[in-house]
């Protein structure tokens, strides 16, 4: 299997990480060597194996529906890269 530059560009778009040509080439090389190593799994027949999604043998617990907010909006907004006291600000979306 080989991951080409087109695939790298596609994954880069899906993961919202822009990569330039040079970086894309490096990534293609790295990913190919990693996937060569991952292909080992194809040696195993797993048709009748149940997938393991969690090792925690527990069921989700219910809790009562109570408001536990500490009203810390100001503190939370403070962490935003561009604050405007009341909102998170992003580049203009609608013209």
């Amino acid at each position: 299997m080989s991951i080409d530059l087109k695939t790298i560009k596609h994954i880069s778009k899906l993961s919202r990480i822009s990569v330039d040509e040079q970086r894309a080439k490096k990534l293609a090389g790295d990913l190919n060597s990693i996937f060569d190593f991952i292909e080992k799994l194809n040696e195993l027949k797993t048709d009748n194996v149940e997938p393991l999604t969690s090792v925690a043998e527990t069921t989700l617990k219910l809790r009562s529906d109570e408001v536990k907010s500490e009203n810390i909006r100001e503190q939370i907004i403070k962490n935003s890269p561009q604050d405007n006291k009341d909102y998170f600000v992003v580049p203009k979306v609608i013209e």
């Binding site: 695939t7 596609h10 899906l14 993961s15 990480i17 990569v19 990534l27 997938p51 393991l52």
Partner: peptide, 29 residues
């Protein structure tokens, strides 16, 4: 970035069963 890319690829349409589901089954083994 490399790991996000690997993860995005194995979860992407057309590859999920071949990689992610396969890995979950081997995890069981």
């Amino acid at each position: 970035q490399r790991r996000i890319m690997i993860g995005t690829y194995v979860l992407s349409s057309g590859y999920y069963d071949a990689y992610y589901l396969k890995a979950q089954k081997v995890r069981k083994l």
